Simulated scan of single mutants.
Amino acid sequence: MSLSPTQPPNMLFIEGDLTIRRVQEMKDVILARLAQSQALEVDLAGVTEIDTAGIQLLLMARRAAQASRKELRLVAHSHAVAALFDLLRIH
């Protein structure tokens, strides 16, 4: 997974795996980005693999955004993300 240090604070592009191996790292990144802006857009087009830990992370981020009255948008779902969302009926 790679993160570009030049990303604007209201955008987050995730590439590579979003699996249990990277969840803690990504949790810290997502929460820091949420703290920096009123709305955060998470681009998932580059996610090549996602597991239930990755889904739990995204749901936690959604709850954190709601609790702090901020907006979190998950956009550009990769095939891997869309397939797991469909399987788990997450919309």
Rank of each mutant, 00 (worst) to 15 (best):
M1P: 14
S2T: 14
L3E: 10
S4C: 08
S4P: 09
P5H: 10
T6V: 05
Q7S: 09
N10E: 12
F13D: 09
F13H: 12
E15C: 07
E15F: 14
G16D: 13
L18P: 03
L18I: 11
R21V: 02
R21P: 00
R22N: 15
M26S: 02
M26G: 04
M26V: 02
L31I: 07
L34I: 09
A35L: 03
Q36P: 05
Q38K: 14
Q38D: 08
L40C: 07
E41M: 06
E41T: 14
V42K: 03
V42Q: 12
D43G: 01
D43A: 08
D43M: 04
L44W: 08
A45G: 07
A45S: 15
A45L: 12
A45E: 14
V47L: 09
V47C: 02
T48S: 15
E49L: 10
I50K: 06
D51L: 08
D51Y: 08
D51C: 01
T52G: 02
T52L: 14
A53L: 08
A53D: 01
I55W: 05
I55H: 00
I55A: 07
I55T: 07
L57V: 04
L57K: 00
M60P: 00
M60S: 13
A61R: 02
R62P: 03
R62W: 15
A64T: 09
A64S: 13
A65M: 00
A65W: 06
A65F: 11
Q66E: 15
A67C: 10
A67Q: 15
R69C: 10
E71R: 13
L74E: 00
V75L: 08
S78P: 05
S78D: 08
H79M: 06
H79F: 13
A80D: 10
A80M: 11
V81D: 01
A82Y: 11
A82M: 03
A82T: 13
A83P: 01
A83L: 10
L84D: 00
L88T: 00
R89Q: 14
